[in-house]
Amino acid sequence: MTCLPGTSAKKLGLVIDLDTCVGCHACVVSCKEWNTGGYGAPLSDQNAYGADPVGAWLNRVHAYEVTPAGQDAQIVHFPRSCLHCDDAPCVTVCPTGASYKRLADGIVLVDEDWCIGCGLCAWACPYGAREMDGQANVMKKCTLCVDRIYNENLPEEDREPACVRACPSRARHFGDLGDPQSEVSLLVLARGGFDLMPEQGTRPVNKYLPPRPKQAREATDRGAAGVAAGHERPEGFLGWLDRALDKLG
């Protein structure tokens, strides 16, 4: 049934640290790699070796230029995948019931055998998290690696999403955001994690951690007064050197 299952107690999701993400696309490709031979149809690519190649990807990384008033422009690398919303509009619009949200852990999935490829769920998703596969003509989306996180054929430590496993700067965290005491929840609390487009009313499970404030750059060319704390030089540099040597004995 495409009606939402009511609020699941367990809300598995990702926490993405924009302060740490270097925009390397490691999560993007490992996601594609894992999912192209796993859950559902392969993530196909059209015009793979020609002009304007286009493929299905479940995770993509943008870069934004953000300019605080009166300061240098900053760049924020920004991974974007399904946020496994609590109020997932993609699920309720689905006419076939192919899109569903799991009661057990809140993961939003597509049953590709039911999907008619109408595309409506992608229209309903504010985050561009759903992509139609160009070959199988079914809707693809992040599965939160549901076939990894419970997979008994993988060692315990590998039962986490492929993108989290890959991320070299450790900007991606996975856990239960329904449990206020979980590591991810505490991280969100400590770092002021936020929702994307809260006004859309989707109540995303995934959270983003904001970039920490940057040091503003001095605009003036005038030198600041002697700044290296604790080191004055009343008798000039070589005088200071003498004292330094004396201290060494």
Partner: peptide, 15 residues
Amino acid sequence: AVGPDEVAFGKEWCR
């Protein structure tokens, strides 16, 4: 030869 138009790696392992 030029590569194929479509790539769907992993097909054989999908249901």
